[in-house]
Amino acid sequence: MKAGVIGTNWGRVHVQGLRKAGCEVTAMMAHDADLVARIAAEEDIPRHGTELAVLQDCDVVAIATPTASHLGYLQALQDKIILCEKPLGLTPDNLPQFQALNAERSYISFPFPFLDSARQLQQLINGGDFGELMRITVVTGVNLPYPKTPVEWFMEDMIHPFSLLTHLFGDMTFLGACQGTGCNISAQLQCHHALVDLLLCPWPHPGLHFDITLIGSKNAYQLRGGFRPDRQWWMEPLMIDDIAQGTGEEAKDAIWIRANHRVANTLIKLQKGEISSQQAQELGLFPLQRALAMEQSLLPLWQALSQYDQRPTLAGNMVWQTT
């Protein structure tokens, strides 16, 4: 299968992932002509350009661009097999346009369920070790060097662990939310009669922090990890009843890139008929409609927080340089 990539930053991760999945990456598109020419040469991609026409002969297209651009590309590329970066970028205003998309061959990349730690959780829950879901609490700490509105911070960064929760337990119902200063947000949802607390806050250290607590009738699990610019992504050992299980996932193993590559591999296996749609979803692949339903469950957040200050703000008190 021939593949193309839109985006020269995280797009390079998709170039690697699609090649590992057996695709021939033949085209790259971006808005900066000089940059896309340089990156395409470095990645040995034969065609490049600033217009969608460069992707004409591609069977698969990966969209690795800022969230606000996702809808436009999804609309323009409905004749392709699409792997789009998360989140969709759903808002109350653009919901009808997302619902009108041809969703048959569009998929959204949510790597969190593809982490080894997430798979460990899934095996335990499916094996009956967890019991009935009683309560979920998630703390997501953010300290990243660009401004977003508080709701945008929530939708773009809480979506990481929320995709895992949706994968493990299914759909959730929004109950309410409140906001403190900046991106201090607390939202509560319900899943299978269990309460789900999602807490977003500025973090004192640059990067991302995730702390997920799952309480069941038979056991309690806690999973922590995140991203730091100096050590990349890592996950601590899964805690079961406050006892560490295993060694976790170390940054040296490039666990986030590995999880992203697993998403691409699952999609290509599905398209080649090597696995079924059900098997792909059990592995963690999100078809467009599944991703849309998940983000739609958070859509009431916009109205719930409309009374609070939604001016763009930095999440955290530091600005740091990325390389």
Rank of each mutant, 00 (worst) to 15 (best):
V61F: 08
D93P: 09
M134K: 15
V142G: 12
P111R: 02
A68K: 15
Q56N: 13
I82W: 01
K80M: 10
F112C: 14
P161A: 01
F114S: 04
S109Y: 04
I125P: 02
F154D: 01
H167G: 12
T166Y: 10
L121S: 05
R119Y: 07
L71G: 10
Q120S: 15
H160T: 04
L83E: 04
T166K: 08
R119F: 09
D57Y: 14
V54I: 13
N143D: 08
L77W: 01
G141T: 01
S109V: 01
A53D: 15
I81A: 12
P66E: 12
P111S: 03
L90Q: 05
I125N: 00
F162S: 04
L95P: 08
T67K: 05
P111W: 00
T166M: 09
D79R: 07
T140G: 00
L168D: 06
I125Q: 02
D93I: 13
I81W: 04
F110H: 11
K80E: 05
D157Q: 06
V138S: 02
Y146V: 02
V151K: 01
L52S: 11
C84A: 14
Q78W: 06
Y73D: 02
Q123H: 15
P145W: 05
V60Q: 06
A68N: 14
L124Q: 15
V60N: 07
E152A: 06
Y73G: 04
L168H: 03
L77E: 06
G72T: 05
L121M: 10
Q120F: 15
K80L: 08
A103R: 09
L101M: 07
G128P: 05
N143V: 03
F154H: 01
G72D: 08
L144N: 14
F110S: 09
T140L: 00
S117E: 04
R135M: 08
L74Y: 06
Q97C: 10
T149K: 05
P111V: 02
I108E: 00
I63S: 08
I81V: 15
P66Q: 12
Y146L: 09
Y107M: 03
I82H: 00
F162P: 00
L95M: 07
N102C: 05
T166R: 11
V139M: 13
P161I: 04
S106Y: 05
H160F: 04
E152C: 01
L168Y: 03
G89Q: 04
K80Q: 10
P161S: 00
M134R: 15
V61T: 07
T149P: 10
S106D: 13
L77D: 04
V54N: 10
A68W: 13
A103I: 03
E152I: 01
Y73A: 06
Y107R: 03
L165M: 08
P96D: 00
I125V: 08
N102G: 03
L52W: 13
Q75H: 09
R105S: 12
F112M: 15
T67A: 13
A118L: 02
V61C: 12
A118K: 01
G89S: 05
